[in-house]
């Protein structure tokens, strides 16, 4: 019983570590995707892809870049 609990604990720890690593890597790649908008008056605005607004831009752009114009 004790051995089973220890194995379950180890399995849980491994699954947690894998999930954390995956989330970290996903977050890192998402942060690499950015949107820069220049307005008519010369001012700019940047949107990160981890924002709702930025994600709309990057989702469409990713597909266009992939298939070409």
């Amino acid at each position: 019983m004790k051995k089973l609990l220890r194995n379950l604990f180890l399995l849980g720890a491994l699954a947690g570590a894998a999930y954390a690593a995956r989330s970290y890597l996903q977050g890192e790649s998402a942060a690499d995707e950015t949107v820069q908008i220049v307005f008519d008056d010369g001012s700019t605005r940047s949107l990160a892809s981890n924002t709702t607004e930025g994600q709309e831009f990057t989702d469409i752009s990713r597909k266009i870049v992939e298939i070409g114009l």
Partner: peptide, 27 residues
């Protein structure tokens, strides 16, 4: 859709329009 979205952001920011857009993706 992309150009319309950028114009929407311009309006929301009180601008007339977007003059340039740069989107950096993984690919």
């Amino acid at each position: 859709a992309l150009v319309n979205l950028s114009e929407k952001v311009a309006r929301e920011n009180g601008k007339d329009h977007t003059s340039q857009l740069r989107i950096d993706t993984e690919g």
